[in-house]
Design a protein around this nucleic acid. Structure first.
Length: 524
RNA sequence: GGCGCGUUCGUCUAGGGGUCUAGGACGCCGGCCUCUCACGCCGGUAACACGGGUUCGAAUCCCGUACGCGCUACCA
């Protein structure tokens, strides 16, 4: 049975590169009807684990990457928190020691440092002399009598090569002699990452280790540990990095400042900040950052868009297929088609997927996405609105494809506030009204026509205007822009007649009157 | 420094000796549509890192160079 795992450290956020790794693990497991396991690598005495774990769990859930074993759901191979597996790690160390795959080392840091420097001075690569290695209890007792304490090191082979087949990279070969005698247990008895990770992978019967490329060079020592534990190593697949926008550097959450110099990234961040500000969310780089998954949820991106985008970051089915349902990606995903070179994160392309999935979304679901934003921004309810859902539904319909991210529902506050409360764009007001007497005159005439138009619906309204314009011998452009500014305060927006219908007769007239009187009272 | 991995349009990629005058997508540019803005549609721009081989023939195989990244911790 295929068993894959995603093993994040509880850091308080889910990194976009981590999501891609999780996604590929999830897809591979689902494709093979196997299990996707979530293991929390909370080494050391980490505090507030639940606090730092929560964003990771909720992020994965939001994306729909469900796990078969792990926190909350349990499983037969638990516990799924590394911190609760210390005894197993200790047992693994004992096994390695007993099998001659590891030894106790009594060197002091200073002695080690001296050896290192000596090697360096000679221009040679440092390889520990094993001078303070203790393989028998007698030797150990002798060192301890000198007051020394031990760490446990791997007793790595010093000749031959470690060959393995990486499912993505093919045959890979490392000389054993290049490997250090890595420490696997500290002097205080705690275990290090490689030991814990391998011991857990072995105990959990992980069949395929799919992880980022940074671990490729670590694989020989891990294979060595697997062997020492008497466990067949799993298959390995090393994914290329998710790189910074426009570079080959690994994407990191700590470099937001740098990424903000990338115009596309900056635009995406800025856009998110505007939405967050409108609903009073914090926008500190630590928590609000396009490198962290929460960002997308908070701003109103669709999980399907993010997942589809991430799928194609390092994987492709063929030369043209771009959109995949979950079912399709599960069906078609194979490691053989994963790329070997880093893929840089492109905010624009993500947005393109977002647009696509947003367009596909049924109206009822769009409503459900928009409502929380409008509520959070206190745009709902307004005194004029007795049926908020219906009103927002009409608004969304009029918006069409203009709202690409759910948070952009907040871009049209003028439709939600009192008729006297929205501002006029100064430039637009001057151009279309204050300095356009012909337009104002037309608007006056049309206002009275509007007052008499029944029913007050987009189609009828458009007809009315066309007739009006014709009878006046004018062109539609001479009045419609003035009308838009008068009614919304803006020079751009939805179709004019849809806006009028949404607002209704009374409010439309009130707004026109407000604009007209403003022209009169404050002439240019 | 040593070892490993990588290098096709600005970006994501297709390509696994001839069908490649290198295909698709995003972006960008131009046009159409149009009450504005979006959407949509049409068209255009743009790449095999470099140098040697192998071969009748190389983006595809081999070697070297350059560049990038990773590992080389009592970090993960």
């Amino acid at each position: 049975m295929v068993r894959t795992r995603f093993a994040p450290s509880p850091t308080g956020f889910l990194h976009i590169g981590g999501v891609r790794t999780a996604l590929f693990n999830w897809l591979f497991a689902r494709h093979h009807d196997g299990h996707f396991i979530l293991r929390i690598d909370d080494t050391d005495e980490q505090r507030n684990v639940s606090e730092t774990l929560d964003p990771i769990l909720s992020g994965l859930r939001w994306l729909g990457l469900d796990w078969d074993e792990g926190p909350d759901v349990g499983g037969d191979y638990g516990p799924y928190f590394q911190s609760q597996r210390r005894d197993e790690h200790q047992a693994a160390v004992a096994t390695l020691l007993a099998g001659g795959y590891a030894y106790r080392d009594y060197a002091t840091p200073e002695e080690l440092q001296a050896e290192r420097q000596a090697a360096q001075a000679e221009g040679k690569r440092f390889i520990y002399s094993r001078r303070w290695m203790a393989e028998t209890t007698e030797q150990a007792a002798g060192f301890e009598a000198e007051g020394r304490t031990a760490v446990v090191r791997l007793k790595m082979p010093r000749e031959g090569v470690c060959r393995f087949r990486d499912l993505i990279r093919g045959e890979v070969e490392f000389e054993w002699a290049q490997e250090q005698d890595h420490v696997i247990q500290r002097a205080d008895g705690s275990c290090l990452y490689h030991l814990a990770s391998v011991a857990d992978d072995a105990a959990m019967e992980i069949s395929h280790v799919i992880r980022a490329e940074e671990h490729l060079s670590n694989t020989p020592r891990q294979i060595f540990i697997f062997e020492g534990l008497g466990h067949e190593p799993p298959e390995f697949a090393h994914l290329p990095f998710v790189a910074e926008p426009g570079s080959r550097n690994k994407l990191s959450k700590r470099k937001l400042d740098k990424y903000l110099k990338n115009p596309d990234f900056a635009k995406m961040h800025q856009h998110g900040v505007a939405i967050a500000d409108a609903i009073g969310l914090e926008t500190a780089a630590e928590t609000f950052n396009p490198v962290i998954v929460d960002f997308y949820e908070k701003v109103g991106y669709l999980p399907d868009a993010l997942v589809n985008y991430l799928l194609l970051l390092g994987w492709a089915l063929d030369d043209r297929t771009e959109f995949f349902s979950r079912q399709e990606m599960i069906e078609y995903f194979t490691l053989e088609r994963v790329n070997r070179s880093p893929a840089s994160f492109d905010p624009n392309k993500l947005l393109a997927f977002q647009e696509h999935y947003m367009q596909e979304m049924p109206a009822e679901e769009r409503l459900l996405l928009a409502l929380p934003f409008l509520e959070a921004a206190a745009l709902l309810p307004s005194p004029y609105v007795d049926d908020a859902s219906r009103y927002v539904t009409e608004m969304l319909q009029a918006a069409g494809d203009r709202i690409k991210v759910a948070g952009e529902s907040l871009d049209y506050p003028e439709l939600f506030v009192d008729d006297g409360a929205f501002p006029y764009e100064a430039k637009a007001f001057d151009k279309r009204l204050r300095n356009a007497p012909e337009s104002v005159a037309l608007l006056r005439g049309f206002r009275d026509l509007l007052a008499a138009t029944e029913p007050f619906e987009a189609v009828t309204l458009e007809e009315a205007m066309r007739r009006f314009v014709e009878s006046e011998g004018a062109k539609i452009g001479q009045i419609i822009h003035a009308l838009r500014v008068a009614v919304t305060g803006k020079s751009v927006g939805f179709g004019m007649f849809e806006i009028l219908e949404i607002l209704g007769q009374e409010r439309s007239l009130a707004r026109i009157d407000r604009a007209l009187s403003l022209v009169e009272t404050t002439p240019s």
